[in-house]
């Protein structure tokens, strides 16, 4: 890529305007390499924005599932914290199959406060908030 072709497309979603300028390696007119800065590129912005839209969509779906009593709030907060099962299991120091059980509303209701505390800490919220999906 030539230094004249470096895109400067800012991210105009979420706090993307705070994104640092990133260093790119580009060629100058005589073909030699140099560092330059780019504010962003539309292709990469689109991919990141779609990833966030997907998270929002999934959160809406999870919320409904929690309200319909099909999954426990843990499932919702896991998505909200951009975690998946292996990551969450690792944060609460439990086997994945155990965390998976806790995603069932019936099992969730029977959980002790000490287990709930583990999840609340992993999501950086209180137990009360964990029990209620906002």
């Amino acid at each position: 890529m030539n230094i004249n072709e470096v895109p400067q497309d800012k991210k105009n979603f979420k706090d993307g305007d705070k994104a640092p300028k990133k260093v790119m390696y580009v060629t100058t007119q005589d073909g030699s390499y140099t560092q330059t800065q780019s504010a962003g590129w539309e292709a990469e912005n689109l991919a990141l924005e779609q990833a966030w839209e997907e998270i929002e969509t999934q959160l809406q779906e999870e919320k409904i599932l929690v309200q319909e009593n099909k999954v426990s709030p843990i499932s919702y907060y896991m998505k909200k914290n951009r975690m998946d099962l292996p990551i969450l299991a690792s944060y609460v120091s439990m086997w994945q199959w155990r965390v998976k059980r806790h995603l069932k509303p019936t099992v969730f209701k029977s959980l002790s406060d000490s287990i709930l505390k583990k999840y609340a800490d992993a999501f950086n919220i209180s137990i009360e908030v964990l029990k209620n999906v906002d």
Binding site: M24, Y25, V26, S38, A43, E44, A47, L48, Q50
Partner: peptide
């Protein structure tokens, strides 16, 4: 597909998935 673009271009590759 979006994930591919992000791996290739989002912060930290210098452009084109480290090729530049």
């Amino acid at each position: 597909l979006g994930n591919l673009i992000r791996m290739q271009e989002e912060i930290g590759t210098g452009g084109a998935g480290f090729r530049f």
